[in-house]
Amino acid sequence: MGIFSSISNAIFGSDEEEAAAPEAAAAPAAAPKRDAISGVDVEQRIGSIPGSDKLNWKTSIVDLMKLVQIDPSYANRKELAQELGNADYSGTAEDNIALHKAVMNKIAAAGGIVPADLKD
């Protein structure tokens, strides 16, 4: 699993977590496979993670990664940037801002509701 998938799963849950839910809670008819991101208010969801009020996750990729308990090391940020198509990531402040926006744009492209100020 890649870094972006780890971020997405930390925010929205994963298919494995949903599959582990008790069968008794399921509706009598087979429930359709859920779309973890589509239609979700991303700002509200991330803002409800404990500790979100103490971190600048809305603009900082490092703080966003810390919030979802992913090591924000340079190596992990570089791997994330490469996953999102930036092979020239060098870890500058500008690169980190662009990486945060790229993450938010990808979440929005997957159907998440992301405020314009968190995207490009």
Rank of each mutant, 00 (worst) to 15 (best):
Y89F: 15
A102R: 08
A108Y: 06
I107H: 01
I97V: 15
I107K: 02
E79C: 11
G85V: 10
N86D: 15
A81V: 06
I97F: 05
L84A: 05
V114C: 07
A108Q: 04
A110Y: 02
L80F: 01
P115L: 13
Q82G: 06
N105R: 15
V103F: 06
K106A: 15
D95S: 07
G111F: 05
L99E: 04
Y89R: 08
A110L: 12
K106I: 09
E79P: 00
A81I: 06
K106T: 14
K78G: 06
A108I: 10
G112Y: 03
Q82R: 08
K78C: 12
H100F: 13
E94H: 04
V103I: 09
I107N: 04
A109T: 07
A87M: 08
N86M: 07
S90V: 15
I113G: 03
I113L: 10
A109K: 04
H100R: 15
H100P: 02
E79Q: 14
A110V: 02
T92W: 01
N96P: 02
I107A: 05
D95Q: 03
H100E: 09
I113H: 05
G111N: 04
A102E: 05
M104T: 13
M104Q: 13
G91A: 14
H100G: 08
Y89T: 12
E83T: 04
L80V: 05
L80E: 00
N96M: 14
A81Y: 00
Y89I: 15
K78N: 10
E79K: 10
E83W: 06
P115K: 14
Y89L: 12
E79G: 12
S90Y: 11
A93D: 15
H100C: 13
G111W: 03
D95T: 13
N86H: 06
P115I: 15
P115N: 10
Y89S: 07
E83F: 02
N96T: 10
G85H: 04
A81W: 00
G85D: 11
K78W: 04
A109W: 00
A109Q: 10
E94D: 08
M104E: 11
A93E: 12
T92N: 04
A110E: 13
K101H: 12
G111L: 05
